[in-house]
Nucleic acid binder design. Sequence first.
RNA 1: CAGGAAGUAGCUUAAUUUGGUAGAGCACUUGGUUCGGGACCAAGAGGUUGCAGGUUCAAAUCCUGUCUUCCUGACCA
Length: 471
Amino acid sequence: MKDKTNKMITSRDVNFAEWYTDICRVADLVDYSSVKGSMIIRPYGYAIWENIVAVLDKKFKETGHVNVQMPMFIPESLFNLEKEHVEGFAPEVAWVTHGGSEELAERMLVRPTSEVLFCDHYKKIIKSYRDLPILYNQWCTIVRWEKETRPFLRSREILWQEGHTMHATREEAIEETLRMLNVYRDVQENYLALPVITGKKTEKEKFAGAEATYTLEAMMYDGIALQNGTSHYFGQGFAKAFGIQFLNKENKLETPYQTSWGVTTRMIGAIIMTHGDDLGLVLPPMIAPIKVAIIPIGDVNEILNQITELLKKEGITFVVDNSDKSPGFKFAEAEVKGYPLRLEVGKRDLEAGCVVLVRRDTLEKISVPIDEVISKIKELLINIQSNLYNRAKMRRDSMIYHANNYEEFLEIAKNKPGFIIGKWCGDVNCENKIKEDTTFKSRCIIDEENNGKCVCCGKEAHYNLYWGKQY
RNA sequence: CAGGAAGUAGCUUAAUUUGGUAGAGCACUUGGUUCGGGACCAAGAGGUUGCAGGUUCAAAUCCUGUCUUCCUGACCA
């Protein structure tokens, strides 16, 4: 077999950042627009997003949520009602100051997230305990004026989903926060084949205005963490700031408890950086827009029609590359696009009564009798899905290290890409020091236990944490 | 936002040092031959050199500003 490297893609072991942007471009996922950080998601990239949306939206609805659409603009005075929230987001909001040529009496911001819009609305519609819970979700774009931008990972206009719920009791709201965290985990592990670590953020890392933030942390091929979604418990902070109250069964006024949770197209970045290789994208079958790329070699129309009819009947998506490119070109193209399976069929196969299936994850070529093609495709798609997950999990687990003291921590942080498990006293000064010395931040809390020493200061530890560098 | 690099056809780039007709490869179009790992022949189309000013008889080239992209940090989903 000849050299299979792709000249258009930088090797991921040579320069991971360039490899990433090469994949985004060569696989036709995105294009740049003329505004920094505003990416064009091209049809193939958007099809991946649509598949993820379909899975999530179904699960949101199964758990009782309904979709709404809120405005894009927030008046400054409304935004200012919750102080921590303002401090957290003020540095990165985009302001609208003019309507046509006239300056606005009050400037407005383009939503960087919609908590205040939902709260403003909830204030009007929540009156009784009978109105609760309110389980709303919104699919929309938000704007955060990021300084450094990268396709999918960090853009100024972010395509996402944000759930905002209100509950009569604290317990119910916390249950919701964790329920949605688990929905995210389910989708990321079982559909996107991304092993994720879930847990609570430290005070320093939690969402501006939240009482508790739960996160999903994925590890990319280069050992760097990608925060792949968050679920927040707000307590009554926003509700009090916005004066949201309801009458309970005893006819007494109470303040409701709130949650919010969101995931973005960043998940596509995570898929690329977890599964992709030097030949291109590798998509998990569950969310791949096209499951099978069919490459006919020579005139094989008759058998081709049989196979495509069967695939249609089974609802397995496919493309047939009938262009007059050479087979080698088509193979490479199918690899760049990350189609989970490639089906090659030529005269040589037909004489043997077979076709060739090629797995994108292992590049293994398998000759299959024609009457077993569909069942083999089904079997392989399932197998590829689980192989991608297991492979990513094994790699991740092999890059998680334990540090018992600061010397060990510094040594690992310096020399081994990945996560570090280390105990922590709970003092933000230790988090700051670790960040300053290593650029590692706390990813999330594993558990809260009272034994051992803080990996930084050596004092009594109260938490066990994952630490890591992040995108 | 700090530091660095770069913008010439869809992509990679030559011409920039020393100002003087923007040239190629890939991709694209048409016709033909091919076809099991990025095919070949022939013809064709594609550029106000990122944008805006300035210097000059003359600017891709020199100067100023600005926008965008990439890399390394800080910030963040």
